[in-house]
Write a protein that binds this DNA or RNA. Structure first.
Lengths: 221, 221
DNA sequence: CAAGTTATCAATAGTTCGCTTGAATATCAA
DNA sequence: TTGATATTCAAGCGAACTATTGATAACTTG
């Protein structure tokens, strides 16, 4: 009975997950978790908020089904709950960039001078021909948690010192956390200043990983 | 300058769209709009809320880039802003069903006794062989706004009277707004009670429409 | 232009949210 | 057990959100 009641109960239950995406702080945590699982303290540090606050948000994310958690000795490791959730976050991010001018504007300001990008498809081709050097400019922990096959880890901090070790005659492609992450942009700008031929991959690791799946989703998103 | 500031500005801007999905009432409006565009008053009536309240929520959805609107004489017609937005809503709905037991429970309670479903793929095959009768049991306005090619509009209200007009020897497949919409379930139950062979389509019109697109998304979701 | 519809606005009250601070708890290592 | 580290809990307060009500504005029709 109570058709009306149970219908609104359904929307209320779905909104529990929706609320997870309603706070900038939580979105930043989700974005970090899209790179791989992390402890509370790491997440708090990387997102520049207090541990207590990060912990609260992470608990909210846990309650809304967005993340899983696992105790590891004295720390607790949080991770995205699954690829549907990752797809949802990327979808929100991209849809907001399309529909909200303010997102586009903020992204442009944050990323600085635009640098030339290479598509996923072209990268795959050229990797097959061994025609390009692919570098992952994210922090080493994120590389360790997962990276594009064939990439070398060169964290942005170390780029200047390690640039000499890269072949001078190949084009270099840098990637990082995603299209709204500034690392690859910065890396490419620095390499070009140093006289190298460099571009950034249009996407980052999460997108690569998601699109690399054998059987895609059955239903939307 | 202000790298930190502009980064948080970016997440704040994205959260503007995220907030749209944080309220059950708004989700219900989005779900209705997934069937086609509607005026404020229609939406208010269909979701059993006051016009003023629906209007407020619709304005919030407009501000977050989820919907577009257009004045039509004395009324204002709202519509989903695009397929990315539709995909986002379907993704949230499905992800919440996977990750939140409460959503599953509420859906089961709302839908009542489960009825046998037919997959999209099988339906396409059998439609090709003219082996099945497909009926759309949504309200007529929704059928008019878009429907599966080859379907006949038989609103649930009229099913009992019009059942006699359907061939007695074919299987009948009913579809409605989506997997969480009760119309198709009810239709199939009634047809079976009347001695017909009937199943429901696993998805509804929005999913069909979205998956029918020629070139799918470039990036996630 | 007057009447009727449809949509929005404005003000309010109750509720929830978000961040801060300081204390409490859990685990590990010595 | 004690100390150290990582996480969570609890309380508080201001801000933001939500639904309600009644008034107002926009548009169409007669």
């Amino acid at each position: 009975m109570g058709t009306r009641e149970s219908k609104s109960a359904l929307f209320e239950a779905i909104a529990v997950m929706g609320k997870a995406f309603a706070s900038p702080r939580r979105l930043e945590l989700i974005d970090l978790l899209a790179q791989g699982s992390r402890s509370v303290e790491e997440l708090a540090r990387a997102s520049a908020q207090s541990t207590a606050n990060a912990s609260q948000h992470l608990q909210a994310l846990y309650a809304s089904g967005i993340v899983t958690r696992e105790r590891e000795g004295t720390r607790v490791r949080y991770a995205l709950a699954g690829d549907e959730v990752l797809a949802l976050w990327l979808g929100l991010r991209d849809a907001s960039a399309v529909r909200l001018a303010e997102v586009e504007r903020a992204a442009r300001e944050y990323l600085g001078q635009e640098v030339e990008a290479i598509s996923r498809k072209e990268l795959i081709e050229r990797l097959g021909r061994d025609d390009v050097v692919l570098i992952d400019v994210r922090p080493p922990e994120e590389f360790a948690a997962g990276h594009i096959e064939g990439a070398r880890s060169i964290p942005l901090d170390e780029l200047d010192q390690r640039l000499a070790g890269l072949p001078a005659d190949s084009e270099i492609v840098a990637y990082c956390r995603g299209p709204f992450c500034a690392y690859a942009h910065q890396a490419v700008r620095r390499m070009r200043e140093a006289g190298r031929t460099a571009r950034r991959l249009e996407d980052g690791w999460p997108e690569w990983h998601l699109n690399d799946k054998p059987a895609r989703r059955t239903r939307a998103a």
